[in-house]
């Protein structure tokens, strides 16, 4: 039982790490603290549910619909809501404060829409529940697939940011936005791309999450908080750090809910977060 709890934790942690990668790309490159980030994750989960129950589309194939949609939604959010904030701000800090306020409002707008459409209870679908055996633990095959997909997407992102010209422009804007123009990079364009890409990753994370557990409309806010905790623990912009921190949070949550009380998982997450802030304020690996 302990072993299967650990495996659950790794699967959950893998999804968290993926979601946190999306947030760190949005924050690190576009410099927007998006408190409605978790709502895009929820959009991914609900959209996958609708496609599966309404159109019998397999959640894996659903990714090919959900991810582009999440990309488009985030692209529009950036263009319509964020760009004006960036444009009118005299200092980068101003953008951060304004974007926190605007996205905090968005959070409630999205939550209201989700509750309206799906009710406040659990929304989920049964899929790939046949167990497979891993290290002697019996785990639903949907979970294993979810972990595999999260790893695949994370690996692809890592390769894209470290190995391609596109990734290099992202790193240039993330570290020295003021100098991007010197090498012909349109900072605004890259920021918009990064914001949309972060949203696409959020959508993928939501789709994956829905493959192995039901969701409720208020989960988005908690996911944003967890993603924030993971990003800060791992170090802003540190992809390997986000992976490690995501796994730690996932495993601790699974262990606490198995050995102590499911109601205490969030408290445990924040206890770890506080410890990290006190002991390593710049992240575990700084």
């Amino acid at each position: 039982m302990l072993l299967s709890t650990l495996v659950f934790g790794v699967v959950l942690g893998g999804t968290y790490a993926l979601v946190a990668l999306g947030l760190t790309i949005q924050y690190g490159v576009a410099r927007i603290m998006n408190l409605s980030f978790g709502e895009v994750v929820m959009f991914g989960a609900f959209a996958t549910f609708v496609l599966f129950t309404g159109a019998s589309l397999s959640p894996v194939l659903g990714l090919f619909v959900v991810v582009p949609l999440a990309f488009a939604i985030s692209w529009i959010l950036y263009t319509v809501l964020m760009r004006p904030l960036v444009k009118r701000a005299r200092h980068p800090e101003r953008v951060e404060i304004d974007s926190i306020l605007v996205t905090f409002g968005l959070l409630f707008l999205f939550q209201g829409l989700f509750t309206q459409a799906f009710g406040s209870g659990y929304t989920g679908y049964g899929w790939l529940q046949a167990p497979v055996e891993i290290l002697g633990a019996r785990v639903a095959s949907g979970r294993v697939l979810g972990l595999g997909l999260a790893c695949l997407i994370g690996l692809g992102l890592w390769a894209a940011t470290t190995r391609t010209r596109w990734g290099l422009t992202m790193r240039a804007v993330a570290t020295r936005p003021a100098f991007a123009a010197l090498v012909g990079i349109d900072e605004n364009r890259v920021a918009r791309q990064a914001f949309a890409l972060g949203g696409a990753i959020a959508g993928a994370g939501g789709a994956i999450l829905s493959m192995y557990q039901p969701v409720t409309p208020i989960d988005g806010g908690f996911l944003t908080m967890k993603a924030l905790v993971i990003v800060i623990m791992g170090g802003i912009g540190n992809m390997g750090g986000a992976l490690a921190a995501g796994l730690i949070i996932g495993i601790v949550e699974a262990l606490v809910s198995y050995a102590v009380d499911p109601g205490l998982t969030l408290a445990a997450t924040y206890a770890i977060f506080l410890a990290v802030l006190l002991w390593r304020p710049k992240g575990l690996f700084a």
Partner: peptide, 19 residues
């Protein structure tokens, strides 16, 4: 100077050829 201080010399040169 306006260099990308956190990146390598190689990356800075590659960025120079970005246009």
């Amino acid at each position: 100077r306006g260099v990308f201080a956190e990146l390598t010399v190689d990356d800075n040169l590659s960025l120079g050829a970005h246009p």
